[in-house]
């Protein structure tokens, strides 16, 4: 199966991270990261607290506070290191936030539709004038979009009450995470980064989120799963596992590596990499 995936890689989007050094408020957090994620692959990044996992996800998405000092991020060969977050999203990147922000007054449904339309039009859309014909077309497309969203909602086992609520406002931790996955499902990116989507979820919620991810992550989507615990890896099987320690990838391997980490702990990798150095 791995072979067939690789055979198609020419046609696929690839996220390449080359020697990435990132600092936040003058402090270097990432110290030379190299990664390559192809559509259809699931990569897990694991690491102890403070190793730079979230920094990596923010830097890939282009958060202005996370300054890239050295290195490059390429999507499908295009250097996106200097692009704004919206441009990156339009090229097919998506970040599921660890702590999603509340946007008052914008319902989840309207948000999804606005985002979907923005992505479709590469951010250039302008509101159409309210002629009756346009209005009728609009209403039709709202209807179609609604059924598209309903489909995803069912797939993820979310209650559709969520659509009328303001985005993330008053959501529980679990609801926020599910809402992130719903956005991912509706916006259908090429490469999805999940920043500790599993943290704060109870076991049932974790199962539904993981099932949803499995249903979504097909040959069309590459996934970078950032996690602190490996319990989510009981439900989502990564093709590759990377261990991030002190801003560097200390070890890479297949999904067995996660198992080994579970048994031996991060110190084992730390010691091993010190020996290697």
């Amino acid at each position: 199966m791995r072979v067939s995936l690789h055979a198609r890689c020419d046609l696929m989007k690839t996220l390449e991270i080359k020697d990435l050094h990132v600092s936040v408020e003058g402090k270097e957090i990432l110290k030379g990261i190299n990664l390559q994620i192809k559509q259809g692959e699931v990569h897990a990044i694991m690491g102890p607290n403070g190793s730079g996992k979230s920094t990596l996800s923010y830097a890939i998405m282009g958060h202005p506070k996370y300054v890239i000092m050295e290195g490059h991020i390429l999507l499908d060969g295009q250097d996106i290191t200097k692009l704004s977050p919206d441009k990156r999203a339009q090229l097919g990147l998506f970040l599921a936030f660890q702590y999603p922000h509340e946007i008052s007054g914008v319902s989840v449904f309207n948000f999804l539709r606005n985002a979907y339309t923005s992505l479709q039009a590469n951010g250039t859309r302008t509101p159409e004038a309210g002629t009756p014909e346009n209005r009728a077309k609009e209403l039709q497309s709202i209807k179609e979009f609604r059924s598209h969203v309903q489909e995803k909602i069912k797939l993820l086992g979310i209650s559709d009450d969520i659509l009328k609520r303001y985005l993330n406002e008053g959501f529980s931790g679990g609801e926020k995470k599910r809402c992130e996955i719903l956005q991912l499902a509706v916006l259908n990116p090429k490469i999805a980064i999940l920043d500790e989507t599993d943290s704060g979820l109870d076991i049932d919620a974790l199962k539904t989120v993981a099932q949803g991810m499995n249903a979504l992550a097909g040959p069309e989507m590459g996934v970078l799963l950032i996690t602190h615990y490996n319990r989510i890896l009981n439900y989502i099987k990564p093709h590759f596992v990377h261990v991030l320690i002190d801003g560097k990838i200390a070890k890479s391997g297949t999904s067995e590596l996660a198992q080994e980490l579970e048994e031996k702990g991060y110190d084992w990798v730390k010691n091993e990499s010190q020996v290697a150095a």
């Binding site: 919206d86 999203a89 923005s118």
Partner: peptide, 26 residues
């Protein structure tokens, strides 16, 4: 908030518009 919205493909201006007009909604 801006970064969150921009990561969904909204331009900075569109993101601000969502936040601002959403502010009146409730």
């Amino acid at each position: 908030q801006l970064f969150y919205l921009m990561s969904r493909g909204f331009t900075e201006n569109e993101a601000k518009r969502l936040i601002v007009l959403g502010f009146f909604e409730p």
